[in-house]
Write a protein that binds this DNA or RNA. Structure first.
Length: 209
DNA sequence: TACGGGATCTGT
DNA sequence: CAGATCCCGTAA
């Protein structure tokens, strides 16, 4: 189920749909990060959440502001924000120009622990690969994503892009060896009941609850 | 200009 | 379950 090899990059128009459609379609796709030194890191997307116009949990719910203005733009751009003063979250802007919506990428399945991450936690325990990009904050940490990567096109010429599902994943999904779960979103105070979170069933990287 | 809260994570 | 830590939206 883990994709080690490159697949076809997803072109921008693919993201030009309502976020609740794009979010489940992103499961099984690979998020790819090219670092300044040329190193490329790939991870399979296993958990996503959708945010859309009229949704009280959406950063753009009230109005357009400097921070959320990227969400109003054309689909296929990154929207990165800082949360709790210490973590970053990565979104993909979706839907038509003018409609503020995005998909939060919450977890990745990595194939290896990136070499800039210590293989041991602070308490000394060995980190599991499955948990390195488990959660939106850890995901950005594991791929060195910060505010400098916001408002970038998802394209192979850029520091971030997304690739289509591997043939293996497509087969596994169509034969029900892999399935998705749809449920409510995490960590919100508003829009708590909207079931716009999707994840790959049985994946260790997916948030509990 | 000041203030308070947040799409999180870790250790107690 | 509290604390870390800072940007940004809202109110003044």
């Amino acid at each position: 189920m883990v994709t080690l090899s490159p697949n076809l990059p997803i072109a921008l128009p693919w993201f030009n749909r309502p976020s609740p459609e794009v979010a489940p379609d992103l499961l099984g796709c690979s998020l790819v990060r090219r670092l300044p030194d040329g190193q490329v890191v790939r991870g399979v997307i296993v958990e996503t959440e959708a945010y859309a116009p009229g949704d009280p949990a959406c950063h753009a719910y009230r109005r357009r502001t400097p921070r959320n203005s990227i969400m109003f733009g054309p689909a296929g751009q990154t929207y990165v924000y800082l949360i709790y003063g210490m973590y970053h979250c990565l979104n993909v802007v979706t839907d038509a120009d003018g409609l503020p919506s995005a998909v939060l990428i919450r977890a990745l399945q990595l194939d290896a622990i990136p070499n800039w991450i210590s293989p041991n936690s602070k308490s000394g325990a060995k980190l599991k690969v499955d948990r390195i990009a488990a959660g939106p904050g850890k995901l950005c940490q594991s791929l060195q994503i910060d505010l400098s990567l916001t408002a970038k096109e998802l394209h192979p010429t850029q520091p971030l892009w997304i690739e289509h599902r591997s043939p293996q994943f497509v087969t596994d999904y169509s034969q029900n060896r892999v399935s998705f779960v749809q449920t409510t979103r995490i960590g919100l105070t508003q829009g708590v009941d909207i079931p716009w979170r999707w994840y790959v069933k049985g994946c260790p990287a997916v948030s509990k609850v």
